[in-house]
């Protein structure tokens, strides 16, 4: 049996859905858009514009529908829905991306502890009242949270004070809850404001924090092992040291030659003059005086006392120098005696 004739007939009756183009069409199913990157055929354009446009549009639409109808579908009450992929074309947004809301203190805590509470959207304004068999407000007029204070009779505990007012007690409790919530809300808003803006909202506090950190760092390195063998606390941060900076090995020639010439001129100059100039520099002065060994001369020169002592005692130290001087004095006396 030859079915080719039947097949051909069938194919003639039902036109194909295939699309034949030189370059495949660029389909963006997410935006329901198809772009035909083939150049426009001049001849058919010239001969009859409308039929040319119609055939172009038909080919493009067919290609787009081919892509759309082969997408996975889900069922819905209205009929099958095709699941569209994310669009590939990038269109500019209408508004900037939404800012990330900072977490409230409770949300932070819940996140840290892994608590998954009810989501906020689920908390509805109305609650079901079993007795009245209807939905009533959670708060506001005739609300659930006012039921105790608004009921016509209230039970009083046996051991209550003589002036105990159950309605007032319930009201106070409710009011306290409201104020507490308001306070927390304000604190959260303030915290959000702070994280949102820069950290230097309170410069005094920042300075204090810096000072504390400095003190902590000093105390940590003040043990015998300079903090190396101390017991680490949980969550203790590693101390940051001062990073040494080196000049790059490859630099500009002019800068290098200038540095070398500076050094040379310094070496050529009078040593005393050099010291003078260095001493005159305010930054150096403050730094050297910080060390404690330098004493400022009344003449304005800086004397390195330690160095001077070492030089005078030929490296044996100040105590030895003192002893020597004493000895020399004694010797002098005795010498006098001898002379006599």
């Amino acid at each position: 049996m030859d079915v080719s004739n039947i097949l051909a007939d069938h194919a003639e009756k039902i036109k194909s859905t295939e699309v034949e183009t030189d370059t495949p069409l660029d389909v963006d199913a997410g935006f329901l858009t198809v772009t035909d990157p083939n150049p426009i055929d001049g001849e058919s354009y010239e001969s009859s514009l409308e039929t040319h446009l119609l055939s172009l549009a038909r080919t493009g639409t067919q290609a787009l529908l081919n892509a759309l109808f082969s997408l996975p579908t889900t069922s819905s009450p209205d009929g099958p829905l095709a699941q569209l992929p994310a669009p590939t074309t990038q269109l500019p947004r209408t508004k900037p991306l939404p800012k990330i809301k900072p977490l409230t203190k409770w949300e932070q805590f819940a996140k840290a502890k892994g608590i998954q509470g009810k989501s906020k959207e689920k908390r509805e304004k109305k609650v079901w009242d079993e007795e009245r068999q209807e939905w009533i407000n959670r708060w506001g007029k005739d609300a659930k949270n006012k039921q105790v204070e608004e009921q016509w009779i209230t039970e009083v505990p046996m051991n209550a004070d003589i002036d105990f007012d159950p309605r007032k007690a319930a009201r106070d409790e409710r009011k306290a809850r409201v104020t507490k919530n308001q306070k927390q809300h304000e604190a959260n808003a303030a915290r959000a404001q702070k994280t949102g803006s820069s950290a230097s909202s309170n410069p005094e506090r920042e300075a204090h924090k810096k000072d504390l950190e400095r003190t902590l760092a000093m105390s940590r390195t003040s043990t015998a092992s300079m903090g190396k063998f101390d017991r680490k606390l949980e969550g203790e941060k590693k101390m940051k040291g001062i990073k040494r900076k080196f000049d790059p090995t490859e630099g500009s020639v002019s800068a290098e030659s200038k540095a070398a010439l500076d050094l040379l001129s310094k070496m050529n100059s009078d040593a005393r003059k050099t010291r003078m100039t260095e001493a005159q520099r305010p930054s150096k002065k403050s730094r050297t005086s910080h060390g404690g060994n330098e004493v400022e001369d009344p003449e304005g020169k800086v004397l390195n006392v330690r160095k001077a002592v070492r030089f005078a005692s030929k490296g044996r130290g100040g105590a030895a120098l003192g002893r020597e001087r004493e000895k020399a004095g004694k010797l002098g006396k005795s010498g006098k005696g001898k002379r006599r």
Binding site: G30, P39, I40, L53, A57, G60, L68, T74, P80, A82
Partner: peptide, 25 residues
């Protein structure tokens, strides 16, 4: 005309095409 990102679409509801074509380059 088409700048909305939608997750799913009812295919039978696609009723019309806006075709933008150019004259030969």
């Amino acid at each position: 005309f088409n700048g909305e990102v939608v997750e799913s679409i009812y295919l039978k509801g696609l009723e019309h095409v806006i075709s933008v074509s150019l004259a030969p380059t």
